[in-house]
Structure formats: C-alpha cells, structure tokens
Simulated scan of single mutants.
Amino acid sequence: MKVALLVNPAARAGSHSGAGAEAAEILRARGIRTTIISGGSAAESRELLRTAVEMGTDAVVVAGGDGTVHLAIQEVAGTGIPLGIIPAGTGNDFASTLGLKELDVSAAADTIASGRTRAIDLARVTRTDGTTTFFGSVLASGFDSKVNDRANAMRWPRGGSRYNIAILVEFLTLTGIPYEVELELGDGTREHVTGDLVMATVGNGRTYGGGIPICPDADPTDGLLDVVLVRPAGRMRLLRLLPKVYKGTHASVAEVSIRLVRSVRLSSPGVTAYADGDPIGALPLTVDVVPGALTVFSP
C-alpha cells in the first residue's frame, strides 16, 4: 500500500511534523510505503495532496486537526480512496466521530495499517455562487459561529478550553438573529421556519468545539443530517441551557428543536457559517447529505 501522509505546519495548533514523522516511521515498519507531504499554506498543501491522488496513492493520512482533515476530505470525497487520521489538533472532532480521538500516534497508525475501512456520509455545502465544499462534523451559524470567530482570534489558552471561554464571553451580548430555514426532512416532507434564532447548527457528526455534543444523536452513517435550532429565551434560562449542551441533553429544552433532514437551506443577513472549525461562507447556504461519500480507516 502506498500512503500520502499530509502534515500541515501552518495549522493553528502549530507544527504537527513530530506526529507525522512518528506515524510515517510506524507505517513504514508495517511495510507501507509512506510519503510525507506538507505545504506552507492550506492551498499549497491541498495542491500537493491533489497531485498525490492523481498519481495513484492508495490512501491518504492526515496528521493534524479538523482543519487539515477538512482539507483532505475535499480531495478524497467520492473517490473511494480511504482516509486515515492521526489526531494531533486542537479539537479533533472529526477524529471523535470515527472513534479515533483518544488514540495516540502509535494506535492511530496501527488502525491504518490494519486496513479496516468503512464508508460514512459527508455533508455538502452549496454557496450562492454554485461552489461546493464538504464537511465531516458540524456546521455552525449564529451564536456558535460568533464563538468560533472569537476562539480563533484568541492566542491563549490553547486546546478546547478556549471555546469554553469564548462561549461565556459571547453569551454576555447574546441576542436573537433573524433566520429563514427551509428543511427537507428525512421522510421527504418540507418545513419552513422563520423568525429569530440564537443559532442554527447542522451536524453530520456529534461534536464541535473540541467535544461539545451539539448534535448528540447524529450518526454519520444514517444518510441524514441533524439540524439543531435554538430559539431566544431569557438570558438566565439560556445560561441554564449551557450545562445541558455540554452533557448532550439539551434536546429536552423547549427552546431547542432537532430535525433529521436530507437537506437544509439557512438564510440570515450578516452571518458567517463555520464547518469543521473553519469559516465556510456567508449565509445563505444550502447543506445536503451525500451518503457513503467518504471511506475511512476505522478501529
């Protein structure tokens, strides 16, 4: 097996070259030809990866976090080329979706060397200009995208705790945002939601922000996406909602509604959406599920 191992030194959490080199050594010891590729920017890394795919690599491995995984997904989605992950990022939410988040470099590399794969769904974002992007975990818009804005701008602390701090700071100025949401439900019926929302989130996976289970029952193999809508309420009531969000029990709160959908269109003025932790585009955006679009190495 020939493997292209992508390492992105430009990732926010810093260089992952150590994890990448260790993983490459383990894979080579298992008889897997492994070539490390790394660009000085996301665009350069993606171009190098695209070349590796065109030249016939048997698999792609990422040593990094959600942003680097997101980059790789764009090149391997729909190709049947399996994707492996060495979790080495800040949040590692997509690795969590695959049951890889807690694995060290050696165990993650062994998962790839075992050759066991499975197919999972991806979500596809379509912008107003017709361009598309895939994501694997969660798309956030509204309050949670503002949290991402703030967390990304923070130099301290590193790790998932910065999301917790960003949540508390953004909560101080929390207001409802006018939305229009068009849903195609799993049974093919349609639903139209208008009015103020605190946030509108679309999940292929369960977690974002380094493990927050915003879509607690999302299943990346069910051919559906989970849409979580949160309506405004008093600030103290929403503050009491936060512990439920961290436990994944917020579906029981009256202001929260969760829908299983084939597709959803989100519209709101001045709102930027994030997917897999990175900005994906300004609303309006349409998100639909692509069943079985990604093959992954799985424990």
Rank of each mutant, 00 (worst) to 15 (best):
R116H: 08
T249M: 03
P213C: 09
T90Q: 05
A21C: 12
I280F: 05
V198S: 00
G39N: 10
G210L: 04
P291G: 09
A107H: 13
R237P: 11
L283H: 06
L139M: 11
R46G: 13
L260S: 15
R190S: 15
E170I: 03
E255Y: 11
L122D: 06
V228D: 05
T90S: 14
L225R: 11
L285D: 07
A233D: 15
R237S: 15
T173R: 13
A200C: 12
T207N: 13
L27N: 10
A23K: 01
N8Q: 12
Y274M: 06
G248Q: 00
T126E: 13
L49V: 08
V264S: 09
G160P: 09
A43C: 07
V105G: 05
T295N: 12
V290E: 13
P82L: 02
G136I: 09
C215M: 01
V227C: 14
R30V: 01
W156E: 10
S257W: 03
R240A: 15
D93W: 01
H70M: 04
V60K: 02
L100S: 07
E170R: 15
V105H: 05
V105D: 02
P284Y: 07
T128I: 11
K2E: 14
I177D: 00
I81H: 12
R262H: 15
G14C: 03
G39T: 10
G176S: 09
D104A: 08
L83Q: 04
A218R: 07
N92Q: 06
S141T: 13
E184W: 06
D104G: 14
K247I: 00
E255N: 11
T97H: 02
G281W: 01
R28P: 00
T189A: 10
A233I: 04
A273D: 02
V181S: 06
A19Q: 15
G80L: 00
V69Y: 03
T173Y: 00
F171R: 03
A63F: 03
S41M: 01
G14Q: 01
I81L: 12
L48T: 10
V202L: 08
T111H: 01
E184F: 04
G64P: 04
T117N: 05
G292I: 07
R50H: 14
G99Q: 09
G99H: 09
E102D: 15
L100N: 08
G188K: 13
I37Q: 05
V228G: 00
V296N: 00
T132E: 11
R240K: 15
I32N: 00
S141E: 10
D129R: 12
S263F: 02
T79F: 12
D226T: 15
P232T: 14
T131D: 06
L229P: 01
G115C: 10
E170C: 13
T117S: 04
G188S: 11
